[in-house]
């Protein structure tokens, strides 16, 4: 697989390590009433879809940026690559 890095252009997937579903960006509020349940779901449960999947890749052997890659899990086709930073900020995190 080739990941088209937003800053560096096309890079081989072997330069990256894979973390998992990009929903991991949405860390629950630890002070909420239902924090224990929310963290259980956050930590352990996954949608695991067959089809389009947004996922976190880390450019370990490159510029060490985190990316959100949108990829089809049935074909490995990558349709979109974004900086995780941008995705997280758009979701209202890191403010």
């Amino acid at each position: 697989m080739i990941i088209n890095h937003p800053l560096l252009g096309p890079r081989d997937a072997s330069e990256f390590t894979y973390l998992g579903d990009a929903s991991l960006i949405n860390r629950p509020d630890w002070q909420a009433e239902d924090a224990a349940e929310a963290f259980y779901e956050y930590g352990y449960l996954r949608d695991n879809p067959a089809g389009e999947h947004q996922e976190l890749w880390y450019h370990e052997a490159g510029d060490r940026s985190w990316l959100v890659v949108t990829r089809d899990t049935t074909t490995h086709e990558i349709s979109k690559v974004e900086l995780a930073r941008d995705v997280a900020r758009a979701r209202g995190r890191s403010k």
Binding site: M1, S14, G20, E55, R71, T73, H76
Partner: peptide
């Protein structure tokens, strides 16, 4: 990485 394709990659 997550996949349902019954094939892998070269690395």
């Amino acid at each position: 990485y997550n996949t349902y394709a019954q094939r892998g990659n070269l690395p």
